[in-house]
Design a protein around this nucleic acid. Sequence first.
RNA 1: GGCGCUAUCGUCUAGCCUGAUCCAGGACGCCACCCUCUCAAGGUGGAAACACGGGUUUAAAUCCCGUUAGCGCUACCA
Length: 472
Amino acid sequence: MIRVRFAPSPTGYLHLGNIRTALFNYLFAKRQGGKYILRIEDTDRDRSGLEYEQALMDDLRWMGLEWDEGPDVGGPFGPYRQSERLQIYQACVDQLLAEGKAYECYVTPEEVEEMKHLAKVEKRTLHFDNRGRYFTKEEIERRKCRGIRPTVRFKIEKPLLKIHDLIRGEVAFNLDDMVGDFIIRRADGTPTFHLAVCVDDALMQITHVIRGEDHLSNTPKHILLLEALGYQPPQYGHLSLVHGPGGEPLSKRLDSISVRFFRQKGYLPHAVANYIALLGWSPGDDREVIPWEELKGMFDLARVSKSSSCYDPQKLDWLNGEHLRLLSDKEFSDFAMKYLKSKEKMEDEEMVLKILPAFKDNIERLEQLAERLQFLKEDFSYEEAAWIRNDESRELFGQAISVLDEMQVVGNDFYQNFLDQLKKRVKARGKNLMLPLRLAVTGKVHGPELKRIIPVLVIEFLRKRLRRALHA
RNA sequence: GGCGCUAUCGUCUAGCCUGAUCCAGGACGCCACCCUCUCAAGGUGGAAACACGGGUUUAAAUCCCGUUAGCGCUACCA
């Protein structure tokens, strides 16, 4: 049974990069009929926050990345919050200590700093020189008396290591010129990330660790630690990182790439998933617009790219438009109504519901919908007022109003009749006819065809809009 | 500095493993045209790339080496 996990630390909102790791894990598990586990890595108490954990789960669910085991839903390998597993880690540290595979290290942070500084000016490899490993009993006693609390460091005894990465293939490391003995328990008694991940991956029986490339260099440490603990390491696959549009690294502070931002702007979760799946993965043929249900059956780790990529908001917009068009009118209306209502109170729900479908082919984000529907309220403004404020247009509006006044039947061909009558009275045609009209009723230059909008509007409403334009 | 990863149009990518089918295919964006009583949407077409230098080979985007560039790790962050 394949078991994968997504293990975020609740130190900020989920962004594109995080969610991509989650998505790839999820897709991988679904395709293989495996389990996808959510684990909260909150060993850094200072930076972790419960509100972030809540937000993170909320965002994950919005994306459709529902987990099989996790802190709120439970599961056979819980608890799934690292802060609740402290005794487990402690037991592992004790075991390593007892077996001589780790040691208490009385070197202070200041000493480490100094050591590094020295290495830098002497242009030597700068990593911990393991000095704490060789302190005499007396030295340790002296330090204890000075009140120094020890960290626990893991002994690196097998520096040469070759790993097989699911995405990158063979990668060879020599720990000797990378790191020294590394800390697995801080002086305050809390475990570090390295210890916690290894213990949890082992105990939760994770078979495949799919994570960001930033962990590639950590992998040899993790394998060593796992082996020392007596566990068979999982298989590792390291995903290349995603960068911002300009190639800058993604940061938690950049909120234009957070899931919350995508939600707010009115993107479809499945479109976002589709887009980020395409960032570093391709199905192999030319397909790009891929519905969620299909995507779940298509994903293949072997087709994941090794090189990193840049986020392109324009392509996301296009793809979101495509997904919007994949929706039925009903689905679109439901989704749009939910979004609109979350934004502000809606007074004329019935009217909105009627014209909503007309906009489906026309927008890329729901945020645009809110803008374009402004004209339903009384206080909307005209986008390019120059098209309205000229004599020809005023003449047009005046005539349009009289046409409305004289029209009795409001049937199916109401729009066509209206236009025919209007054309008999004014000489404006084409752009000079349609654009001022569009502006008068919708306030915007862009939008669906007028023949889709005008027929669903109430005649009284139309009259009101034309009058307003006349005096604008 | 050390170690590791990566390198195809501006961007996302196909092709690379298993050299010849590639004067490199698709998509976004851009430009032009068509459709349209308007703007969008839609349709058609166009400009646009194998980082550089050496090998290997009858033949290299594809295999090897080097250079350069970008990124990551080098924390008592994860």
